[in-house]
Design a protein around this nucleic acid. Structure first.
Lengths: 352, 352
DNA sequence: TGTTAGCACTCTCTTTGGTTGAGTGCTAAA
DNA sequence: TTTAGCACTCAACCAAAGAGAGTGCTAACA
């Protein structure tokens, strides 16, 4: 049996209708709402074929039909070609919204994920870059009191991280700039993940040196390096967790609770993202997902890059009955906008 | 009719039972679970009296009884005396948890509110201090690139704020320290809210001065002051929004959605906090709340102070059928712990 | 040969009515 | 003043009936 043109039209009509209403679709509905010029009986025959081919199922004998994961997969693959070809018009608009108040990398992420959930009305996520691989460009200490020092860490790609250091003993404030300079010099070029391994030899080296400010430097260094190596390996932001409460498939509180508990757990999210592909855009539908908890959900992710290198992913989770068209376009546009913002603001090699 | 001892015992028993089970309480239940030595019939009579006095209501003629707001108010006022007298034992424990990774003021807030919702299983909030009233102690600029400068602002009470400045024109990096010093000097002692009003005169002054680094200073100053005056007037953090999904009173998704939408709105929360009293501990029950949306909720807030001055509030929202004992103790303990942490870490006059 | 009208059939959803059980209020006795 | 007894009420549960949406099949039609 082949998927001829009329079958495709009917299948798409069913999927669209189900996406809209979350209700099993009957032959009459299709014949009325989508003018196909054929009677319900004909459509029934076609639907029966589509069911046999694995695109539709009937929840019970006398109900309408619901698309299967296979149907969504077909639908999405078809959509894909069109979407990938089309240039989304409002990227510059998106960029403006994302960039608003986004002077730091983190705000770019938070804004993006917020907008993504607002636009799609689903739950959105972003996994922020693993900084451990980044190299240190400069270190600057800012004294708050004589025992509290703010450490500002500038990484190679102009990402900035800050840590507050609470020292046990006061440090002479007039030496701060000197210490900053030495630190910058000593640690320049090392990766964050190297801190643990070079710690001992660096202390050793300084110990033998004994210049003017070495004393204070020796006091701070262990603190500082420990703080740096404690940086989170990844960072997941999410938004719109409670959007699913508006969906009919989650009008059972227990189900909603389950979903929310799952997506509130940053660790499972991080793992989830690992499973997704590394293409510009990745879609997994229903049981294609690794996690049992997401067997009724689809996951649409996009990657974002800095300097050509993949540094993180952004995505949306919603029911398999998802408005794929809208979501795919939105995810794609936002990741594009992010890429531009990031490369413009943070990429060393890419300055005006 | 007077509220004699037995009536009080029965009333408390009913409230406790309802807090536990969220189910209307009947005379038999009371007589069985709480050994009062009287028969259900007697209890029925007393319950009838209590209803007449406004402490109980019957959802329908043949059901058990439910406590009214008035009952909770009585219950809480009674509890109050005991709680206020008792010293909570585990403040130092709490302090440890809150202080973990809390080198900055913001983390203290976030940790506190997280713990509060974890302990109470309700929704918790904190309103962070209005910084506009704080005065500037020091300003330090940290160059990221020649057009991106991180502005670190140290306030009188050692609170630190950071803003990234994206300049249109590069600034000579070797002047940064000089500029920082001038800025610190010029702006020292001003409040954040003053920025707008002193902006023009300051620029005027610098314009006439014309020292070495004045040029760059003039470029930066408008940027900088604008950023500062854009600081949020308040900042509300919340946690445990979805805890209510576990409560039987919210097993209707629509109701749950309503609640969550309300408490997700930072503005209404901020207003809500304004209505609460400024005692160390404030409780408003059911219809005592200003907001219609919270007519079935109780709000327990505590204040926290820096240097004796109220700088913010922390609180819990839950159903009127709330475990007041636990919540009151927790809110009180956490606000106490916060007070100690804050005064220890951020209070200028209170150093070791 | 593909399409369609007609019809019997299936299954969920809603409504209806009866039953159960928890709980009450009242009365009369202890 | 307390309590046992009893009639009464009402939500919650359950089963049966009916409505409605939808199907599959068959036979007629273009």
């Amino acid at each position: 049996m082949s998927l001829d043109k009329r079958k495709v039209t009917i299948l798409k009509a069913i999927i669209n209708s189900y996406i809209d209403n979350a209700e099993a679709v009957g032959s009459r509905t299709i014949s009325k709402k989508y003018e196909l010029g054929v009677s319900p009986a004909t459509i029934r025959n076609e639907m029966s074929d589509l069911e046999e081919m694995g695109f539709l199922i009937q929840p019970h004998t006398s109900s309408g039909r619901i698309p299967t994961d296979k149907a969504y997969r077909y639908y999405v693959d078809d959509l894909w070609k069109k979407v990938m070809g089309s240039n989304n018009p409002n990227i510059s608009q998106l960029k403006n919204i994302i960039e608003e108040k986004s002077e730091e990398m983190d705000s770019v992420f938070k804004n993006s994920v917020r907008i993504l959930s607002q636009f799609t009305k689903y739950t959105s996520f972003i996994i922020a870059p693993q900084l451990k691989q980044s190299t240190i460009k400069r270190i600057q200490l800012v004294p708050i009191t004589d025992k509290r020092i703010l450490l500002v860490l500038v990484l190679q790609n102009n990402i900035v991280k800050q840590v507050m250091l609470n020292l046990n003993n006061p440090i002479p404030l007039d030496q701060i700039d000197k210490i900053s300079a030495s630190l910058s010099e000593k640690l320049n070029g090392y990766k964050l993940e190297d801190m643990d391994s070079i710690k001992d030899s660096l202390i050793q080296e300084l110990y033998h040196l004994r210049e003017g400010s070495t004393e204070s430097l020796l006091v701070m260094l262990p603190f500082l390096m420990e703080q740096i190596s404690k940086f989170e390996d990844f960072n997941v932001y999410s938004d719109g967790l409670t959007n699913i409460l508006d969906l009919p498939e989650y009008n059972d509180v227990v189900k909603a609770r389950e979903f929310i508990s799952f997506v509130e757990d940053k660790n499972s999210l991080a793992k989830l993202f690992q499973f997704t592909g590394e293409n510009d855009l990745n879609i997994s539908i229903g049981r294609e997902n690794e996690y049992e908890e997401l067997r009724d959900c689809s996951l649409i992710t996009a990657t974002y890059k800095l300097n050509g290198k993949l540094i993180g992913k952004i995505g949306v989770i919603g029911p398999t009955r998802m408005d794929y068209n809208k979501v795919i376009l939105t995810v794609k546009s936002i990741s594009n906008a992010m890429n531009e913002i990031i490369s413009h603001n943070f990429d060393e090699e890419n300055k005006e």
